[in-house]
Simulated assay, not measured.
Amino acid sequence: MFATHSHTHCSIAPPDLLAQLALDGTSDQQQAAVRALATSAAFRQQRAVMGRLTRQFGLPMGQLVGFNISSTRRLTVYDNQKKGRTFLPGVRMRGWGEHKSTDPAVNEAYDGSAQTYDFYLRVMGRNSLDNAGMELVSSVHYGVAYDNAFWDGTQMVYGDGSGQIFQVGGLTRALDVIGHELTHGITEFTAGLAYSKQSGALNESFSDVFGTLVKQYTLKQYAVEADWLIGEGILVPSLGKALRSMKAPGTAYSGDRQPATMDGYVDLPDDNDPRNDNGGVHINSGIPNHAFYLAAMALGGNAWERAGKIWYQTLTTMLHANTQFDEAARATIEVAGTLFGTAEAHAVEGAWREVGVLP
């Protein structure tokens, strides 16, 4: 898997959006987008290598990078002080159970990590990303006006935003963004979905699913009450309302190319051109995203109680590196029947049929 796709780098900002702004944005947006693309490129190798070591060779992530593994939940937030990769994680600012910092970004990263940890522990029975108490490490103020946030294979990294693409401070305020990126860590430890084409779109979709579920769980929202937006309010208003809409893919921001059904599937090459988005991983994820939305709405209630548990069990026990959309669909149907029953399996099947993944 990782030998083939060694350029893996998952971040919240869709590379095709950054590429679009680098070409067609204002002069300030062009500079911000080029800076974000160049900085993100520096991390393309690390996630792949760390995922391979932890999953294929059984080496604990915490021991590899010098972070703690504990029977009690742990998280630590560092300040990267607007420096770069060699400075990670940076200066320690706040550890588990310690008083608030005077820095809002530190507290937001702390709270978001804690809320994501709580969701997985209380709802899914999972003890951190590796299910063995791995410390959640975050670094804020990465780079200079950096327009991105990402899981680098070992920790969370947050830029401040430039005010040209992302609002200043927006990336640490968005709980679903934090939940999304941390879920990439769970995917590394479990299914290991290759970050290319359909398997990569599933990788992105599972992160969107659990990003929105962390937010809905924290807000105690029923599925019908949720906005189903990923990153609502973090882009500058002129670009759009969010990064993605699971309810209405393709409507989140100006230039949003996400399809809701297979009729709009975009077959792109995985060729390192950011406009092609690793074969459309952020673009085509709209299809499985919409399937989850439809399943959650059909099942009703709180989306994390049935739909979320079906998707979690599928991700952690049923998938492999090169899983395609139709395989994932059949797996969720099987899990729905096993966990809940025939009615739930039919609801999930109907969702996948509605988006055209199943005939």
Rank of each mutant, 00 (worst) to 15 (best):
N131V: 15
Y222L: 11
F189Q: 13
V168L: 13
M156V: 07
V214E: 02
V209H: 10
G169H: 07
G192W: 06
V140T: 14
T190F: 07
E135Q: 08
G231N: 03
L182D: 00
K220H: 10
E135C: 05
G163T: 03
T183F: 14
F210M: 10
E135S: 04
L219H: 08
G112C: 02
H184N: 00
Y158L: 06
M124L: 11
G185W: 02
G125A: 05
Q164W: 12
S128K: 04
K215Q: 14
D176W: 04
V214H: 05
A201E: 09
H180C: 09
G185N: 06
G200A: 04
Q155K: 09
G185C: 08
Q167K: 15
R122V: 15
L182H: 03
H180T: 09
A223H: 09
Q164E: 15
V209M: 10
I178Q: 10
A145C: 10
L171E: 03
L129D: 05
A132M: 06
M134Q: 12
E225S: 10
T187F: 08
R173C: 04
R173I: 09
G153W: 03
G169E: 10
A145G: 14
A223K: 05
Y110N: 00
T187V: 09
G133C: 08
L121Y: 13
L175C: 08
Y110D: 06
E181F: 10
F119Q: 00
T187L: 13
A132S: 09
G179I: 04
N131Q: 15
S139M: 07
S207H: 11
F119G: 00
F166A: 12
L136M: 08
G163F: 15
I230R: 00
V214S: 02
Q198Y: 14
G231E: 02
D147W: 07
T187A: 09
N203G: 10
V123R: 00
G161H: 04
K197D: 11
H141W: 09
A201R: 08
D147T: 07
A223C: 11
W228G: 00
D118K: 08
V177N: 09
V177Q: 03
I230D: 04
K220N: 11
Q115E: 12
K197L: 12
N131E: 13
A145R: 10
E181N: 06
I230V: 13
G143P: 06
F206R: 01
K215V: 13
I230W: 05
G153I: 14
D176I: 05
L193Q: 05
A145V: 11
S199W: 15
L229Y: 09
W228C: 06
S205H: 11
A226Q: 11
Y120W: 15
N148W: 06
